[in-house]
Simulated scan of single mutants.
Amino acid sequence: MKKMPLMKEHFMLVGILIFCTIEDARSLDGHYTLPNVTHLTDLFHHQTLNQAFLTSFGSSNIHFGNNGSNVQLTLNKTSGSGLISLNKYNYGFFSSAIKLPPGYSSGVVVAFYMSNADLFPHNHDEIDFEFLGHENGKQWILQTNIYGNGKTNIGREEKFRLWFDPTEEFHQYSIIWNSHHIVFLVDNIPVREVENIGVMSAVYPSKPMSVYATIWDGSEWATNGGKNPVNYKYEPFVASFGEMEMEGCVWISARSVPSCSKGGQEGPSTVDPVEGEDFVKLSQQQKMGMDWARNKFMIYSYCKDPGRFPVLPPECRMR
């Protein structure tokens, strides 16, 4: 995943632009009435990770458990580690329950994302959940991002603080990706929607992608712009993944179009995450849930960063 270094002046400006609700969002001990939304994760079966994924890197730091239904990915001085899905998908619903490393975690990056950089190295697409470590282990930052058609010169990042401690127990992180929109969800609550309309259509991820789960050293940029690198005195850093769901159109390279299938087997899905009613647009409840999440917990948006973009990306000017 390509990351671009940011200037010191940019970070000063970001500090000014952070929303006034950040103090509320910082309190992990706060009690929040969570929005009532449909639990989309209840609609799909869980994948067996050791059958649905291959090793991407760091095989010695990958440990499957519970008959392959969950996995621990470790970062230490030797290596990070990661998995790549056996199948590639062209649209669908993708979700994992994740528990992040506790304690000091500066510079550590845990990622659950989709990419086709291996197939299209100069014209790739990407949809990212990235978790950025912190000096205070409870204060992980959730970053979402998308790239389309190789347009990596513009990072479309949005950052959130979470309303829970992500190191204490598993929480669900999900992606809806189809021809209508991309939606990022945390415990089934939408936190971001990217619609495939207007100027976004030219940079909208549209080519088959693999699913990745990784942990790695992001010392150069992840925490306070690289000021707080990974301190291996606190290793190992262990991220746990489970309840993996990958439901959509499996891409078969021998065909000119993807084939919708369930669990990698030929045949129609019993629930179609590409065009089904629950997936083509947000319900009123989901919209209210997204407003709640963004108003209380979003701390950075590329569309509110004129220091980084003197001329804001065109989709920002449409909001």
Rank of each mutant, 00 (worst) to 15 (best):
Y232N: 02
L185Y: 10
A202T: 03
G225Q: 09
C260D: 08
G225Y: 12
Y232F: 15
L185I: 01
L162C: 03
E247C: 11
A222K: 04
T214V: 05
F160N: 09
M244W: 11
P258L: 03
I215W: 06
Q265S: 11
M209G: 06
S206L: 09
Q172I: 14
W221Y: 15
R192D: 04
Q172A: 10
E220D: 14
N231I: 10
L162N: 05
G264L: 12
H171S: 07
D187K: 04
T167H: 03
Y212L: 13
H171K: 05
G155W: 12
M246R: 09
K233W: 10
N196F: 10
E220I: 07
G242H: 09
W216K: 12
E158W: 00
E169S: 11
V183E: 01
G248Y: 03
R255T: 13
S253Y: 10
A202R: 13
Y234W: 09
Y212R: 05
D187C: 12
F184S: 00
G267C: 06
S210N: 13
E245D: 00
K207Q: 14
P166L: 04
G242Y: 03
E235I: 03
M209Y: 08
A202M: 11
L162K: 06
E169P: 00
E220S: 15
S256R: 13
V203E: 13
Y173C: 07
G264V: 12
W216F: 15
V186M: 01
T223Q: 12
G242L: 03
H171N: 05
R161W: 10
D165F: 07
C249V: 01
P205N: 00
A254M: 12
G263P: 00
A254K: 14
F241D: 08
I175Q: 10
Q265M: 12
S253K: 14
P208H: 06
G225C: 04
S210F: 12
P166F: 07
T214L: 11
M209I: 02
G155Y: 14
V238G: 04
E157G: 08
E195T: 14
K262P: 01
H181V: 02
Y204M: 05
I252S: 08
M209C: 05
